[in-house]
Each structure stands twice: as structure tokens, then as C-alpha cells.
Nucleic acid binder design. Structure first.
Lengths: 206, 206, 206, 206
DNA sequence: GATTAACCGAGACGGTACGTCACGTCTTTAA
DNA sequence: TTAAAGACGTGACGTACCGTCTCGGTTAATC
């Protein structure tokens, strides 16, 4: 993934390539900016937040921000990504156990809205920002991946029928989470996980 | 719900109360403005749309818009509501037939942009606009209602098990639609409907 | 003087021509509007005054105002004229006595700023409003007239030299009043009158 | 006089105080804006002129104008001041010669529009703008000063009686100029100067 | 130690949209 | 026909934010 594809201007991603000449970028600035971005977002919402305010809050000039991110959207995206912990692969030996673990983890994350409080804004921006669309797709795929892995292993082990569309199963599990989060506002908890499993597991096991 | 609670300035909502004095509001203006709003939104997105452009497109002055709606957000909300056709109740005698009909209808609506192209923006706004949140909740409930009715009838007829949580079933059906629409971008079509039914129907029938 | 030259739309000037059909114009409206105009002008200045406010204050609709006056300027001018008492002709037998009387009267009027508080606004408007220019010229001529009469009589009686330009004399008397009123802000009182007479009378008497 | 008292936002007045941080104000912008202001004023009058047009004409954004001047009025005042050439002191050895020179200079200036075309607007604004009032008073005093000097020298030399009020003499000379300019519209030329001198000089010389 | 190049903050810049206000006109119902 | 009420198109207002662009001043790595 290049910087351009990253929507990031001149970012290094932690890789130490040839040492640059001149004054190096301020070490703490990135973090200060990302933190300020999330803070401001929490306070006034993504809609009401301005680059000037973020810059001031981070104790940084606007130019410094734009030297590191190509746009407001890119900055916000980065800020959001920095707030996400990766979902761990799960392999407890049985599909049911793996699903219980994964889905409860997902439920916890969504309920405690770190990333997800901001998901609406992300989705909205992605509509008219192709770059963000790509990023968001990557995020979604990344999120689905452990679930896909669980189910694939299940098929291999014969725990899951192999005549079903895998994407549909994933959608049936994850869809309700998203739906509740974004639209109905209903609880996303262990109860939901149990009920979903009760609804879907019987069908997908041989 | 009052006009104030509606976020709308001086709107009447179709109720014919005491005949107003002075020059009445231009009859076609509301419609022209709402139409222009949706047109412009479709073309440049809600993010890129400006009140000046909407006014020009509607052949109306900005002042006229602000006389009728308190803000850009209120206008957009009204425009969206006006674009929604109510989902019909379905009762073909069997739960399976009803579900097939309802879900395919939903799939058609979601695939063909109208409301849903704008759903991301709606959701985003609702985060920081309580009134819009309420409106959106109403919309969601309205959308779920026919599905709830189908399942309730099914339980009464004994076609559906009565020991399952009804909300979870609805979520399992509708969630994947929303998830695909907003995040994965996967197709929302008859195939999805068939697969979802194959996944869930076996479990919920006795 | 026609209505057009008057800057007034449809005004009657007190002449009772053919009785009109339909509802007659509200009798008190003219006065109410003019009074409201002067009131508002005194409160917020001519610059800050709006037709809507005047209409509301007069208990009258804007249309009613525009039915009677062609423009804001025309209304204001009329309001100002209505506030002016005509200057009386003076003839006490001697030029000196006449001048003392006339100039002290003028000084009183200017000091107690009825018309004159508004003179700056009038002058400013007249720059780009030919109609108002004409009106204002008429007002100025009307104001000068008694002074011209005094001096003319003086010449006829031999009290005033006949080899001087009459306009210049008038200007030398009136100019300082205007100058002080509009620019220096110095007192306009009996002392000024005395000093001006002391300055100019010796020269213009044979 | 501070910037605030000046009605000007952040203006420096040529004083080189502590070196400012950040990007300095565009060097030519002030002049471009002032020039554009005067140009537009000449074309459409101060009444018909808009900030947008001035900004466009100056090749500058509206924000830049408002960064430098607090209001339209403040801008116009500055523009006017920038258009005024100071009146020179005159000392040709005799009061008569000095007066002829000064008054003809004044007549020329008043006849040829520059400042005086705008004097009505200035006066009008000063009614409701205390700052402008102060500025205008300064301008007036500045304008009177050479005339006062001429007369004072005349008194010292014994060319002018010392028992007359000096201000009244000045008013008698200058008043007619203002009166003609603002109200009567009569010519302001050498003839007027000659006649005024003929009217007043005999009295004020011993 | 001097040079040099990229960085830094501050903040001005041209644009563009915002929501408000006043003008003078127009369109209702009521008198 | 005129009245009050008030909506209408027009167009300017002054503000906010965008992303870019100077400034004078650091801060390293190179010479």
C-alpha cells in the first residue's frame, strides 16, 4: 500500500528507510494530532469539527497536519484506525466455541463504541470519497476475516455444511450487529449472540 | 408533534387549521424545493450540495427555503421522507410466500437507490441531531412493521415457533440487507433473499 | 407640481377631485406613517431604519406605504417636510432688524435640530437620487427666499449697496450656519448672528 | 490613536513595532482594496457599492478585507483619507494674497470632486459613527488650520483687526463653500472667492 | 563550525457556503 | 378599491471553514 493509496502524504508507516536530511518531523506531533482529532470528534461530532480547532488543540499548525495527511478525511480515517484494536484469530477446536468467542468480542467492541461511534461518519464520507471507500472496504474485510476463517475451518472439519454460501452466513451473523448499531439502537450483547446462534447454527450444521 | 419539534418553521403538515392571513405560501414551492433537494443530492451528494444551488434549481429564493425549513438538515430530512413509499402489508396465506414477497420488495428498494442512497447521510446526521434520530427511528419501525406482522401471523397460525425472539429473527433478515448496503457493497437481490430464507426458515419453523 | 415630481404615488395634496370607487384610503394612515417614520428615524437613525419597522410602528402594511409613496426616500422626504414650519416673511422696516430676526430664527431652528438633524441623510441621498435632489433644491430655495426678500427690499430702499452679488451675501450669512451644523459642530446661536452681522453688514451698507 | 480606536482591525499605520509572526499581510492588498473602493464608489456611488464587488475588483477575497477593516464604513473612511492631499501652508507676505491663494485652492479642490463628492456620505455616516465623527472633525480642523494661520499672522502684522472672532471669520469664508457644495449646487470658483473677499476683507482690515 | 534542507508555529490568502436582513412587489382574505 | 398580513425574488451582509501559501525561526545531517 503506497502513501497515495493510503491517503497519506509523506507518511512513513514506521519503516525506517534512508534517513532524510533536514529537520525531522516532530516525533510527538502525529500522536498529538490524532488524539486531538478524536477528542474534538467526541466533543462536537465529526460534522462540527474543524481543522483549525484540531490544530490548535494539538498545539500544532495546520500546515503540519496537511504535511502529514492529504485531507481532513484522511486524517480522520487514520485517527479511527489508530483507535481500533485488531480482532484476534480464534481457534478453540469447535466452531460453536469459536463463534461464541468471536461474536461476543464483536458485541463488546460495538457496544463500547470506540470505532463504531464513528462508523456512521465513515460510511457517510465513503459515499463520495473513493479513497475512504477503499479503506473502509479493507477494514470491513479485516473484520470479517476471522469469522470467515472460523467457518472455513468448520467446513474442512465437517462441522459446517459445505453447500451454503459462506458470505451469506457471515452476513447473517454480522448484519444484525450493524443494523442494531446504526438503526434500531437495540442492545448488542451476549443475549443477541445466543439468539443468533440458536437461529443460524442448527441450519448450517449437517 | 409540533412544528417546533419537527424542526420545521411554520410547516402545516397537511392539517387545515384556522385560515392564515396574508399571502399564502406558494403552493408548488414546497414540492419544487424538495424535488430540487433530492435532485441535487443525487448529483453532488449531500455533502457537496448547497442551499444556493437548491434554491436556484427550485426556482425559488433562499429566503423562501429558510421561511419553510429551519435549517439545511430539516430540509433534507423532509426531502427524504417525501421520497419514501410506504411498504405494503403482505398476506398471501403462508409465511414463506409473505417473506419472499416482502424481502424481495425490500431488496428492490435497497438496490434502487432512492432512500437508501441517502441512508448513510441520514444515519450520520442522526448522531448529532436528536430530532432526526427520532424521525429515523420512526422510519425504521415503519419498515420493520410488515415483517413483524408476517411473523406474528405465522406464530398465530402455528407456522412459526413461538419460543424464539421475534426481534432477533427480524434482525437476522434485515440486518444483512443493511450491512451489504452500507459496508460490504455486495449485491442485494433475489439470490440473497433465497439464501437468507434457506438459512433461517428451517430453524424458525416447527 | 405633479405626483411624479412630488415623488409621491397617487397623492392628492388635499384637492378633492372625482370621488373614487371602492374603499377610501384610510384617513389617518398618512399621518401615522409620517409620525412613525420620524419616530423610528430619531431612534435608530435613517441608516438603520427599515420600512418593515415603520409599517409595524404605524400599524399599517408595507403595501399601504408604497401605495402612497414611491420609495423609502420619498417617504422620508415627505416626513421631513411635514416637520418643517415655514419661515415667515419678515419686514420690520429696517434691513438690520429684519436680518437679526431672520437669522436668529434660523439659528433657533438649526440648534434645535428638527429638520437639520436629518439634513445629512437628505444630502447624502440626494447625491444619487435626482428626485430628492429636486425636492431638496426646492427646500433650499424656500429657505433662502425670505432672506433674499429682505435684501432686495434693502436695495430698493437704498439701505443696501446695489453693486454686490446678492447670492454671495446670502451664502455668507447662511453658509456658516450649515458649515457649523454639518462639520464643525460649533454653536449656532445669537452670538454667531451678531458676529456675522458685524462682519458683513458694514460692507453691504453704502 | 490605537488600532481599535481607529475602527481598523489589526492595522499598523506604518509603525514598525514587534515583528509579527505568521505570514505577513499581503503588501499590495491594502492599496488595491482602497483603490478599488474609490473606483467603485465613483462608479456606482457609496450607496450602491458592495463588498463583494470591491473584493473582486481588488483581486482579493472578502475575508481579506474584513481581516483589515472592521466594517464597510471603516474601509470607506480609510479610502477617503488616503485620497486627501494635505493643504499647504501659504505665506506670501500679505493677508490678501494668502487668502486669494488659499481660497482658490480650496475652490479647486471642492469643484473637482475627489474628497468632496463623498463628503455628504461622510457626514451622514458620522451622525451614527462616533469614530467617523472624530475622524471627520480632524479633517475639518486640518482644513481650517492654514486659514487660521493666515489670519493669525495678519493680526500679528496689524493687517487684520484684533477685535473680531477669528472662528467667525473663518466660517464666513469657508461656510459658503460648503453650503454651495452640499445644498445650492452653485459654482465654487474664482468669482465666488473674489466676491467673498470683497464682502469680508473691508470689514476685517483696520 | 558552517551550511543546508526540511521542518515548525503562526497566520494571511482566495474560495465557497452559510443563514440573515431589507428592499419593493405580489397575493391572499376582509372590510 | 383599499386594507392588513405576510410571502416572494433579489442581492448584500459579515462569518466560518477549507486547503494553500508565506513568513521568521528551529533542528538535524552533511560538508
Amino acid at each position: 500500500m503506497t502513501d497515495v493509496a493510503n491517503g497519506v502524504a509523506g507518511h512513513n508507516g514506521g519503516v525506517t528507510d534512508a534517513p532524510r536530511r533536514g529537520r525531522p518531523r516532530s516525533a510527538g506531533a502525529d500522536e498529538a494530532i490524532l488524539t486531538a482529532t478524536l477528542d474534538v470528534a467526541r466533543e462536537v461530532g465529526f460534522r462540527g469539527m474543524s481543522m483549525d480547532v484540531i490544530a490548535e488543540r494539538a498545539g500544532v499548525s495546520k500546515a503540519t497536519i496537511y504535511r502529514r495527511w492529504a485531507s481532513k478525511e484522511a486524517l480522520v480515517l487514520q485517527a479511527l484506525r489508530s483507535a481500533i484494536n485488531p480482532m484476534d484469530e480464534v481457534d478453540l477446536g469447535s466452531v460453536r466455541a469459536d463463534l461464541v468467542t468471536y461474536l461476543n468480542d464483536l458485541a463488546d467492541r460495538m457496544a463500547s463504541g470506540n470505532m463504531t461511534d464513528v462508523l456512521p461518519h465513515l460510511i457517510e464520507w465513503a459515499v463520495h470519497d473513493e479513497q475512504l471507500r477503499v479503506e473502509l472496504d479493507g477494514y470491513v474485510a479485516h473484520r470479517r476475516q476471522p469469522l470467515v476463517a472460523i467457518l472455513t475451518r468448520g467446513i474442512e472439519r465437517g462441522e459446517i455444511r459445505d453447500d451454503l454460501d459462506l458470505d451469506t452466513i457471515v452476513d447473517a451473523f454480522v448484519g444484525p450487529f450493524i443494523y442494531r448499531k446504526l438503526l434500531t439502537g437495540d442492545a448488542i450483547d451476549a443475549t443477541l449472540v445466543d439468539r443468533l446462534l440458536a437461529l443460524i447454527l442448527p441450519t448450517i450444521t449437517p
